[in-house]
Design a protein around this nucleic acid. Structure first.
Length: 428
RNA sequence: GGCCCCAUCGUCUAGUGGUCUAGGACACUAGGUUCUCAUCCUAGAAACCUGGGUUCGAGUCCCAGUGGGGUCACCA
């Protein structure tokens, strides 16, 4: 039975890197019909932040990555919060002291790396499932703390105890943990246990090629949600960083990813998280989303600011024009609100154009797309207007922008009265 | 600096010794469609870090150099 886990620290918010690692663990677990565990590593009392756990679980839920065991769902291998099993770590540390592998020092307990080097071996080697064989000389172990003087375990110690307790079979985590691995392997060894398989995936980089950082880069998952990215698109984009589809497909579902996932297809070179491609991909997802579903997503995104039925009417006109949900507002705002029109934007002959358009539109019999288009074009031809300029004037008067959805369609949706009202306002 | 990991277009990548005069995607450029902007279609520019080996043959294997990254806490 395959069991994997992610082990976030509740020190702030849902980090994009946590989601990235979660994605691979999720895919590995689901592909192999295994179990996906989330445990909370809250052993740094000073850095723990209230609400951080909720943000992390909420973020994963938003992405559609579900798990099997955790602090919120429970499970047979708990507690899933490290602060709730301090006695376990303490006893394990004491066990090592008793056996001579660790010693007390100023209230803390340290592992005796030198002794390990002398008694067990000089090299620690493992076969990484992504990178192949990796070796460290044991003189790199040094005497590291396993139990802090405040009674909390350190990361390297707690990880080993927990992965043992939780019967974790595969540790899939970021490459920044490679230097920690020999210490953890040493601990497994002195406990007389075999270690789980390790797979160290790449870490996401910023444009400067350095590991994504809280200070320099947008790493809070919430930011992506608030900017109007769809979770499916973000997930799909993440899949493509470090992993590739066997048929080189770019757009695929999470289910397909799970089906095809294989650690062997993981790259070893760290990818730059470049939002440009994410923007394109998000647009692709928006374009292929069913209107009824997209309608709801937009309605929720704007927290009910726009009427649902109205969104649905406007949607076909803006769907190919937006890459993010947040662009609906700028694109479709004029359908819902009257705008201040800046007359400086207009072409020279705009008054002539608008007057003649107004005349036509006032008399169009059924105010539908067919009639409106036909009558306006007739006016253009009869008067030998410049087609582009004519419609641009209309566009500016109605929508207040040079870049809008098709203007005839837009006017039909707005309705005769509203269109005439807006034209008159501009002409006054 | 020590240790470790990595190295194909600007970016994400395919490629597991010969079919690579290196393929796809994003971005970019040019054209087409069009009332604008998009969508859509067509075309284009753009890469195997360097030097040694191994081999009949190397983007693909080995070594070195260079470059990039990670890590060296009573943080995780």
């Amino acid at each position: 039975m395959i069991r994997v886990r992610i082990a976030p620290s509740p020190t702030g918010f849902a980090h994009i890197g946590t989601a990235y690692t979660a994605l691979f663990n999720y895919a590995f677990a689901r592909h192999n019909k295994g179990t996906f565990v989330i445990r909370v590593e809250d052993t740094d009392v000073k850095r723990n932040v209230k609400g951080a756990e909720e943000a992390i679980f909420g973020g994963l839920e938003w992405l559609g990555l579900d798990w099997d065991e955790s602090v919120v769902t429970g499970g047979k291998h708990g507690p899933y919060r490290q602060s709730e099993k301090l006695d376990v770590y303490r006893n394990k540390a004491k066990e090592l002291v008793k056996k001579g592998w660790a010693k007390k020092e100023e209230g803390a307990i340290r592992f005796n790396g030198g002794l390990y080097e002398k008694k067990i071996n000089k090299w620690i080697t493992w076969k990484d499932l992504i990178r192949g064989e990796i070796s460290f000389h044991t003189n790199q172990l040094t005497d590291f703390v396993i139990l802090k003087s405040d009674g909390y375990p350190t990361y390297n110690f707690a990880v080993v105890i927990d992965d043992l307790d939780m019967e974790v079979t595969h540790v899939i985590r970021g490459e920044e943990h490679i230097p920690n691995t020999p210490r953890q392997i040493a601990l497994y060894k002195v406990f007389g246990q075999t270690h789980p398989e390790f797979a160290h995936h790449v870490t996401l980089r910023g444009a400067d090629r350095r590991k994504l950082s809280k200070r320099r880069d947008p790493v809070d998952l919430r930011i992506y949600r608030e900017q109007g990215y769809l979770p499916e698109a973000l997930l799909n984009f993440l899949c493509l960083l470090g992993w590739s589809h066997p048929q080189e497909k770019e757009i695929f579902s999470l289910a397909e990813f799970v089906k095809l996932f294989d650690l062997k297809r993981m790259r070893k070179a760290g990818p730059v998280f470049d939002v440009k491609k994410l923007d394109w991909m998000n647009g692709e997802y928006i374009r292929k989303t069913q209107n009824s579903k997209l309608k709801t997503q937009i309605y929720d995104f704007y927290d009910g600011e726009y009427d649902k039925e109205a969104i649905e009417k406007v949607l076909p006109l803006v769907q190919t024009r937006m890459n993010k949900l947040s662009e609906f507002g700028t694109m479709a705002n004029f359908f819902f609100k009257e705008l201040k029109i800046d007359k400086k934007l207009f072409e020279k002959d705009y008054k002539m154009y608008l007057k003649s358009a107004l005349e036509v539109l006032e008399h169009v019999k059924p105010f539908n797309l067919d009639a409106v288009s036909k009558e306006l074009m007739r006016a253009v031809k009869e008067n030998k207007y410049k087609t582009g300029d004519f419609f641009m004037s209309l566009r500016l008067a109605i929508a207040g922008s040079r870049f809008t959805p098709p203007i005839n369609e837009s006017m039909v949706i707005l309705g005769k009265n509203e269109v005439i009202k807006r034209l008159k306002e501009v002409l006054d």
